[in-house]
């Protein structure tokens, strides 16, 4: 009796293996790496955020104290990091996204060859890596009179003496925004460009018959609705790269924390606590806050561009 159940079970496993085994076999490598380097780190971050952990002793359970400290006691976070992050995220995220879409749309109105060349130029800033560009920005925005911007403005008599662009709390954030927007035409931009080109031209003809008589109406009523999936993909990419771009302030100013916390973003705050102060538990709580922010923004994008089916 038991024997036959065992045999049945065994053949069940075998049948499952024959049916679905190869599917999981093909997935195995990716799944393993995905679990080890994405899921486990996120879980670990959540776990550590409820503990006190200085990397030497075993994590001590700390309850919600990290989160409470983050919300009530961390002056730097509330006064600089959070406002900076929100300002940066709102301007670079939706700003960069809208810019990507508009440029993609304009490019789509041109014939293939000029379009390809111009798209390449617009995309190329996003290929530059932070380290390589640090050299360029430091030369362009150099604080003494040999800096290109200073030299130009001095020459035009717009300013009287050189400005410490990258060390100044007044200008650092603005320069970070410009630099990040400059490099924001990335994968999402290419996806939207492809999406606009794929819209069935007959839809525009039908739209014209239905009384659409300018290009703006065309974008709102035809182009965007018929490329919602690409719009959503572009939005997700914009959100992720916005939060991922956090290192820019530190790269530009050459120090963490940035001068008077002017360019301090949530990502720098994590690094500050995790790798300089070794308060891993607290840093993990900030990480979780960051992941939650990304989640909220993505939900929002989902609301806007979810396809009906």
């Amino acid at each position: 009796m038991q024997n036959s159940i065992a045999i049945q079970q065994e053949s069940g496993i075998r049948r499952w293996l024959a049916k679905e085994g190869t599917a999981y076999g093909f997935l195995a490598m990716y799944a393993l790496l995905f679990i080890v380097f994405i899921i486990v780190p996120v879980m670990l971050a959540i776990f550590l955020s409820f503990t006190f952990f200085d990397t030497i002793q075993f994590p001590k359970f700390f309850g919600l104290k990290n989160y409470i400290a983050l919300l009530t006691q961390d002056d730097v976070f509330m006064k600089y990091v959070l406002p900076n992050t929100i300002k940066f995220a709102v301007l670079v995220g939706p700003g960069g996204y809208a810019l990507s879409f508009l440029l993609a749309w304009v490019l789509a109105q041109l014939p293939r060859i000029p379009r390809t060349i111009l798209a390449l130029i617009l995309y190329s800033p996003s290929m530059t890596s932070g380290v390589a560009m640090a050299v360029v920005w430091q030369a362009l925005f150099s604080g003494d009179q040999t800096g290109y911007l200073n030299s130009f403005l001095l020459g035009q008599k717009i300013i009287q003496e050189p400005i410490q662009w990258l060390q100044s709390p007044h200008y650092l954030m603005t320069i970070m925004l410009i630099v990040t927007l400059w490099s924001s035409m990335g994968v999402g931009f290419l996806a939207m460009l492809a999406g606009i080109l794929e819209v069935n031209p007959e839809l525009y003809e039908a739209g014209a018959l239905d009384g659409i008589n300018n290009r703006f109406q065309e974008i709102i009523h035809i182009t965007i609705p018929s490329m919602k999936p690409q719009m959503l993909f572009g939005a997700v990419m914009a959100i992720v790269s916005t939060f991922q771009a956090g290192a820019i302030g530190v790269q530009l100013s050459g120090s963490n924390p940035t001068p008077q916390y002017a360019g301090q973003l949530i990502v720098n705050h994590i690094e500050d606590y995790g790798f300089f102060r070794y308060e891993m538990g607290y840093a993990a709580a900030i990480s979780v806050a960051l992941l939650l922010m990304v989640l909220v923004f993505t939900r929002l994008a989902n609301r806007l561009f979810a396809s009906e089916d």
Binding site: F37, V42, L44
Partner: peptide, 20 residues
């Protein structure tokens, strides 16, 4: 799950990744 992970920001989990 993979679609949710599209919004994964690697920089946020530098520390747990280090531990792993």
């Amino acid at each position: 799950i993979n679609t949710v992970a599209l919004m994964f920001v690697p920089i946020a989990v530098t520390i747990p990744r280090y531990l792993i």
